[in-house]
Design a protein around this nucleic acid. Structure first.
Lengths: 176, 176
DNA sequence: CGATTTCACTTAACATGTTAATCATCTCCC
DNA sequence: GGGAGATGATTAACATGTTAAGTGAAATCG
């Protein structure tokens, strides 16, 4: 079905009639909804970050570092929601740009402790006003109450999915 | 502030007390909430896709192709929510694996038209049951009603952000 | 102790995200 | 109809996502 070549049309747009309707189910899936929403949000921030020579992830790391004195790499990965390998690379670059400082823990030579540098702090302070203005604009447009509600629902979703993972492993997957 | 070395502690976990509280604001931002929620969802699907040799994006493309007879590359990018360069690479690989077919439009030699192959369809049919089971499980755990509401809210957010972009450009950024 | 295992982090390898540049075609307008 | 500009698609270059493997140090247990 849906094979008709649309003879009543001007023909430069073949299949224009064929594709409109049946795609809905797919593009309305939960992963796609989340992806598009997040992309729409980040599209607001990226230009400003880019003007300051920062990627989204680099910003996340520096932003997280401003809230602590110092932090171990693994914990930083958890907080900034980055995988170890990504974090490793980014920290190498940020250190080369002298935006962060890294030292090894005295008690455990495996662990590295990271903190933001003065230069890094200055950069953050340069970006923050724009970022906060954008965030405020988003909040105002969407509604502060609704935004809080949305984030609550996202949190609940996240937790129910974590519970789902646990339930799927309780048999004993020790098959290495 | 918050510089005390925690002399009352066993000292292997320096800064353990320093970092718990002050991180909240950051990790509760809207982009982080969306990112974590989406990751929690995708974590459910990735293993199954991986078992069938598909990445998330390859699956999105094939899944989109099942809903149309054929589709132009640009339109496919829009529907599968991928940027052109990513799509280009993935289509090259999927074509090499004979999961899709590609031909050039007769009316406009710039345009390429893509469709799923029999082999691709078979693959989709092999993956779909597991995917749908997972989706059903998510729906059941989170609640169908709440899920629909969440997706509505995400859609509203997306649209209000698009409106925001337009508003930010209406002065005339003709500065090349 | 000392071998084995675990742990923190890094590298490696490949796939995708992101922006800019390139290439071929197509449109439009004179 | 021919040249300037627009358009569809790809390629290039760099950053990150993702999984597996590697490396060195610490914990564990015999």
């Amino acid at each position: 079905m849906a094979r008709k070549k649309s003879e009543t049309e001007t023909s430069t747009e073949t299949a224009e009639t064929t594709r409109r309707a049946p795609m809905r189910d797919f593009s309305r899936s939960l992963p796609m909804s989340l992806l598009r929403a997040r992309e729409a949000v980040m599209r607001q921030f990226r230009p400003s970050l880019r003007n300051h020579g920062l990627t989204e992830q680099q910003w996340r790391i520096l932003r997280a570092l401003t809230t602590v004195d110092a932090i171990e790499v693994t914990e930083l990965a958890r907080v900034a929601f980055l995988l170890g390998p990504s974090l490793s690379r980014i920290l190498r670059d940020l250190e080369a740009r002298q935006l962060i400082e890294r030292r090894t823990a005295k008690a455990d030579l495996r662990r590295a402790v990271v903190s933001i540098s003065a230069k890094g702090l200055k950069l953050i302070e340069a970006v923050a006003p724009t970022s906060e203005a954008i965030y405020a604009e988003i909040t105002s447009r969407y509604g502060a109450r609704k935004l809080a509600e949305l984030q609550d629902m996202l949190g609940v979703l996240e937790r129910s999915l974590v519970a789902m993972e646990v339930a799927g492993e309780e048999g004993g997957e020790i098959e290495e």
